[in-house]
Structure formats: structure tokens, C-alpha cells
């Protein structure tokens, strides 16, 4: 592979990786803090993408402006999830797996009914342009998506490590009993976690829809991706999700550059299997 192609591939991989990390964030938070597996995660991101697309097609506003609206639209799911997960007996990993798989199927079916026909893409002209820097061509849309993802991950990391409730959330995830005994309202901590996770998933959906086609079953692959990244990062470690995302993004770009797009999905699936064997996800 010529050096210029390699550079371009790596840059694309890094930008893709930022987006992937952002997509996985909501899943990683719910697993890390409420110890539940959300198998409907990909469907929720996809739903965010459809909502973003609908708002964009209806209003003509810049897609980035619609992110807060799509994020807010998913908030009822946070309260629904909290109510459901709270009823599950601990340890929640297995019962949450079955319950949220049911939700994945329901959301897929609903999206097929609500948005039939062709796949959707938010194709804003301002995001379609690109600039050339030496060997590397930078697509504006992808660069903006990567920066927005980085910003969101950074903001979340600061919130969780520096703020009073952020630290309380972390403490709840690490040891719920100890957190409650220290005076932390662990129900409130779980609710904050789910609100953040759903809002981030909605935002990720909109960003995703500017670079990837949205279709009713797109979530399956997104959930897979979230599982891979969370396992690589280690449960409860949010910043490492970014590193895992970059790794997967680069791996995918290299695979596509070397052996063509058809090999993309088998390679991701193999990476998932390898990581499951190396590091079982149940804590």
C-alpha cells in the first residue's frame, strides 16, 4: 500500500473510531454503572438517527442544531429503562439481557412500520465538502462528527471525574452498597446515568446518520460494536472506550483498504469473538 493511501486510511480510521466510541458510550455507561446489558442500545441509537433525519427533512435546519432535540426526544426511554431495570433481581446482567433483547425486536419492528422504504441519510451540503491537506483529504462532515464525538466524550469524562454527582455515579457503579452507605442516593445516581446514556445515544444517532445510512435493523451492528468496545475498554472505564473505538476504526479502515468493504463485517465479528474469549463481559 502506498504511504499516501496508508495515511488517508489511518486518518479515516481515527475519525471513524471517534464516532464508534461515541456510539458505544451509552451502552458502556449502563453496563458500568447499573450492571445491565442493554441489547436494544443499537436500536435506540438508530431511533435517534431517524428522529434526527425526520427533524432535518422537516425543518431544513443544520443537523448539528438538531442534536439536542433528538437527545431530548429519547429521554422518556431513560425513565422507562430505569423503571424496568429496577424491577430485575440482582445480578442483573442475565435478566437484563433477555429483557432488552425483547425491546430490540420491538423497536426494530416499530421502525420498520414508521419509516418504510429506502434507507435514510442526512446529506447536508455543508458537511459534504472536503479539504485537501498534503496527502490527506479531509471530509468536513466526518471531521465535524469526529470533533463532536471527542467533545462529548471529553465533557462526560470531566463530569464523571470532577463533579460531585459524577463521582457519585462512579462510586455507585463500583460498589452500590458502599455508595448508599456513604449517603449517595443510588436510585438517583442510576437515573442520572440512564438519562445521560439515552441523551448521548440520541446524539450519537444523529451524528451517525450524517455519515452512515439509517435503516430499521442498523442497530444490530451498532450493539455489536458497543459490546466489542466496552469489553476492550473494560467495564466501567469510559475514557478507554475512546481508545478502543480508535482501534476498531483503524482496524476497519485497514480491512476495507486492503481487502474491500465485503470483509468489514466478518472482521468486526471475529474481533468480537476474540475479545469475548479473552475477556468475558460479566463482572
Amino acid at each position: 500500500m502506498p504511504l499516501s493511501t496508508l495515511m488517508q486510511t489511518l486518518v479515516s480510521g481515527v475519525m471513524l473510531g471517534c464516532l464508534y466510541a461515541f456510539v458505544a458510550l451509552g451502552f458502556a455507561m449502563i453496563l458500568g454503572i447499573s450492571h445491565s446489558l442493554n441489547l436494544a442500545h443499537g436500536e435506540i441509537v438508530t431511533l435517534g438517527g431517524y428522529i434526527g433525519y425526520g427533524l432535518w427533512a422537516g425543518s431544513g435546519l443544520h443537523p448539528l442544531l438538531l442534536i439536542p432535540v433528538a437527545a431530548a426526544a429519547l429521554l422518556p426511554l431513560a425513565f422507562l429503562w430505569h423503571w424496568m431495570l429496577d424491577r430485575l433481581p440482582a445480578p442483573r446482567a442475565l435478566p437484563s439481557l433477555a429483557l432488552t433483547f425483547g425491546w430490540a425486536l420491538l423497536l426494530q419492528a416499530l421502525m420498520r412500520v414508521l419509516w418504510p422504504g429506502p434507507h435514510r441519510l442526512i446529506s447536508s451540503p455543508s458537511l459534504g465538502a472536503s479539504t485537501r491537506f498534503g496527502w490527506v483529504t479531509l471530509n468536513h462532515g466526518r471531521a465535524v462528527v469526529a470533533l463532536a464525538a471527542l467533545g462529548a466524550i471529553g465533557a462526560l469524562w470531566l463530569a464523571v471525574t470532577r463533579t460531585r454527582w459524577g463521582r457519585a455515579i462512579r462510586a455507585t457503579g463500583l460498589d452500590r452498597d458502599a455508595a448508599a452507605l456513604a449517603g449517595i442516593n443510588v436510585y438517583a445516581a442510576t437515573r442520572i446515568t440512564l438519562v445521560l446514556a439515552m441523551a448521548l445515544s440520541g446524539a450519537a444517532g444523529v451524528l451517525l446518520a450524517t455519515t452512515h445510512y439509517v435503516y430499521p435493523t442498523a442497530g444490530v451492528e451498532l450493539t455489536l460494536l458497543a459490546i466489542v468496545l466496552t469489553i476492550w475498554a473494560g467495564v466501567g472505564r469510559l475514557l478507554t472506550v475512546l481508545l478502543a473505538g480508535l482501534l476498531l476504526g483503524i482496524a476497519e479502515s485497514l480491512t476495507v483498504a486492503i481487502s474491500g468493504p465485503a470483509w468489514r463485517e466478518p472482521v468486526i465479528a471475529c474481533l468480537l469473538l476474540a475479545s469475548l474469549l479473552a475477556r468475558p463481559p460479566v463482572d
Binding site: 462512579r170 462510586a171 463500583l174 452498597d177 456513604a182
Partner: peptide, 15 residues
């Protein structure tokens, strides 16, 4: 029931 990955200082502050 300490928060093992957090520092001693962070454990105390969370207390």
C-alpha cells in the same frame, strides 16, 4: 467495600 480503583483521597472525599 472500598472503591478499589479510586485513590485513598477520592475514597475519603466520596465518604
Amino acid at each position: 467495600h472500598l472503591w478499589a480503583p479510586l485513590s485513598v483521597r477520592e475514597n475519603l472525599e466520596l465518604g
